[in-house]
Amino acid sequence: MISPDVLTFAGSGLERCAELRRDSAKMAELLANGGQVLPIWRGKPLVQNGCDLGWVPHGHPALAHGSEALFLGLDDGIARFAQDISDWSPEAGAEAVEAGFFDGSTQFHPSLSDAYAFVELRGVMVQLSARSAELVATAKAVLHWHRSHRFCAVCGAQSTPVNAGWQRACPKCAAQHFPRTDPVVIMLIQRGNKLLMGRSHGWPEGMYSCLAGFLEPGEAIEAAVRREVAEETGVSVGDVRYVTSQPWPFPASLMMGFIGDATSDKITVDPEELDDAIWITREDMLEVMAGTHPTIKPARKGAIAYHLIASWLAGRIT
């Protein structure tokens, strides 16, 4: 097993205080009296000095284009909220958002000093404390849900946020909607002294990681592991064992990590699913994780794949 304590976003014991969400008067009191708000701009959180979240008080000019505040919970007595300010447009000449696997651009708000910037979460996630990581993962996932589920799935009318941002209500048909989390299986597939690694389309050159895929309706998680591996690489898998899980706010998934035993070697890549897949020996993987392999780059630190591989190399999972 891998302790959740070492996994980014895996939880820090935040008091989410779900019982307070329906109390609009209490929410308003918490927000007005010392509440701290995390602005998120088009999926990018506000970060201070590149290593901590950039909290601002309720009513700050940076929140002028903000959505309704989302209550995250109590952080050592401090009420934490988040607001989506995606309708704000950076000043003319500001660095544009970049396309691709990783957006390395930064955006600065005119009401804040240059110590504050909106950045790609992947680039700073391992610098955040466990509490900050849980807070931003929650904020990013729920605010993304609000932006992508503005209309009722039953009748098509525009719904409205209620319960401090943890629900949407349809004023026309009274349907109630709740934030969704997409379950994903991610698997370390072994055969003897080697691991099966794949790379998705658009990844940086040389980057390989564990295979992964979404759970389908009516499917057991172990069956999803075997199906995804077979679909993507043609490799068959026998025994499957659960290891750990990690929330993954890109945009709103729960990664469920497994180790599985392959029963075949031949790889037949589905080009629609993967760019490539290879077997990597233990010796080569040690070089990959150390950053000394000539052609293969390691999985991103902070991701569950990195910890699955590191634990396998250390003999903690088999």
Rank of each mutant, 00 (worst) to 15 (best):
T138G: 09
A277I: 05
K297C: 15
V6S: 09
W248I: 11
R131C: 11
S159M: 08
L313R: 11
R300Y: 15
G54S: 05
L31S: 12
V126A: 11
M285L: 13
S89W: 12
L7D: 00
F258Q: 01
G213V: 14
L195F: 10
A262G: 01
M27N: 07
V229Q: 08
A69G: 07
Q48N: 08
R147P: 02
R16Y: 00
G35Y: 04
A32T: 14
E222N: 04
F102C: 10
P298Y: 15
L128C: 09
F9Q: 06
E91L: 15
E232Q: 13
E228Y: 13
G104K: 14
C173Y: 10
L274S: 04
R150E: 08
K26R: 15
F118D: 00
I221T: 10
P179E: 06
V97P: 13
L128E: 01
L211K: 10
C210Q: 01
S67G: 11
C152S: 07
A277L: 10
A133L: 05
K297Q: 15
C155F: 12
E19Y: 09
F9I: 13
M285Y: 12
P204V: 12
M285I: 05
A277W: 03
V136C: 04
S3E: 09
S86A: 11
N33Y: 09
G35L: 02
E222P: 00
A157K: 03
Q107I: 13
H144W: 15
Q190V: 15
V184R: 03
A79D: 01
R21C: 07
E98W: 09
D284F: 09
L7C: 03
G13I: 04
P271D: 01
F151N: 10
E205C: 04
A252V: 05
R180F: 03
H146R: 13
R147A: 14
C155P: 00
T318C: 13
F214D: 02
R147I: 04
L254W: 01
P249G: 07
H58Y: 15
D276N: 07
Y242V: 11
H307D: 14
P45G: 05
L74G: 07
G59D: 00
V269N: 04
L72N: 10
A32C: 08
